[in-house]
């Protein structure tokens, strides 16, 4: 009995390492393909810098007006904006480039070929591409904002960092789930551009600490569509604003969301293969 379980764990672990290795090959492929188009690489960076400038406007306003939200000082707010900026970069580089492709896969039948591969289809579709250039400006600028905000608000540099990083990872998982769900509509509709647009404008709600929103919106954004987990919980953790329950939710939400995404994905693929075209 226990040896069976052990074998199962082992198999799961093996599969896990296989997937990590496979992901490594994806990254390597994307790097070498990215080098092919240096112009696009630099343009991608330029685009992100333009977006950063737009974000900098908010920072400007925060400091110019010496904005205090509840107990949060402008430096604390910078911490939030930095986290948001970094998560945006990671989302763009790791997920967005894949999610927008789903529609094309369905239209040109690439999905059919991917379906015959002996690895998880969801893995192949949702993580195949990694854009190296796109996230660089956001991640670098985000990290800088976090560092400046952290330092200026006099936060200690201790175990906090580990907690912050762990919550960022959880936030990444939430990002994956939340942004993949609307992309799945591609199985149903030919045009999903508008839905993506809405999803992105909701994403931008993370631009500022969630405290600026009315209570009911905060509840929705934390517990129903957990967008606010993405860039609020990590800074709130270092500011000691998270209760134990919040931390548990921060860990549970990505898991629940992943289960939901998995379920939707399977349904979508099943309906795809029984409808066909």
């Amino acid at each position: 009995m226990s040896t069976g379980l052990l074998a199962k764990c082992r198999a799961a672990l093996d599969r896990g390492t296989d997937y990590v290795r496979l992901y490594g090959v994806f990254v390597k492929n994307c790097l070498s393909a990215g080098m092919e188009y240096r112009f696009n690489f630099w343009m991608g960076i330029a685009v992100e810098i333009a977006f950063l400038c737009a974000k900098a406007l908010y920072i400007l306003i925060v400091y110019q007006t010496d904005l205090h939200i509840g107990k949060l000082t402008p430096d604390h707010i910078l911490l939030f904006i930095g986290t948001y900026t970094m998560m945006t970069g990671l989302y763009m580089g790791l997920f967005y480039v894949n999610f927008i492709r789903l529609q094309q896969y369905i239209r040109d039948g690439t999905l059919d070929l991917l379906m015959t591969k002996p690895v998880s289809l969801q893995f192949l579709v949702s993580l195949r591409y990694v854009d190296i250039g796109l996230p660089v400006p956001n991640v670098v600028a985000g990290a800088m904002m976090i560092a400046v905000g952290w330092h200026r608000s006099g936060l200690p540099l201790n175990g906090n960092i580990a907690g912050f990083a762990a919550l960022l990872l959880a936030a990444l998982a939430v990002t994956y789930g939340i942004m993949l769900l609307p992309a799945l509509l591609a199985f149903r509709f030919v045009q999903t551009g508008a839905v993506t647009e809405i999803a992105h404008s909701i994403w931008d709600a993370n631009n500022m600490p969630l405290d600026i929103f009315p209570q009911w919106l905060q509840r929705i954004g934390v517990y129903i569509i957990p967008v606010f987990l993405i860039s609020n919980y990590a800074p709130k953790f270092v500011l000691n604003e998270l209760a134990m329950g919040d931390i548990i939710w921060a860990v549970a939400a990505p898991v629940l969301l992943f289960v939901l995404v998995r379920w939707c994905w399977k349904r979508a693929v099943r309906s795809y293969s029984s409808a066909g075209s």
Binding site: V25, Y37, G109, L113
Partner: peptide, 24 residues
């Protein structure tokens, strides 16, 4: 499938083949 490619356009073919090695 004659009209559907699994090769990556911008990379040498052996990279795509190697990817399949890892997948399989």
């Amino acid at each position: 499938m004659g009209q559907k490619s699994q090769l990556w356009w911008d990379l040498p073919a052996n990279e795509s083949i190697y990817l399949n090695k890892c997948i399989y």
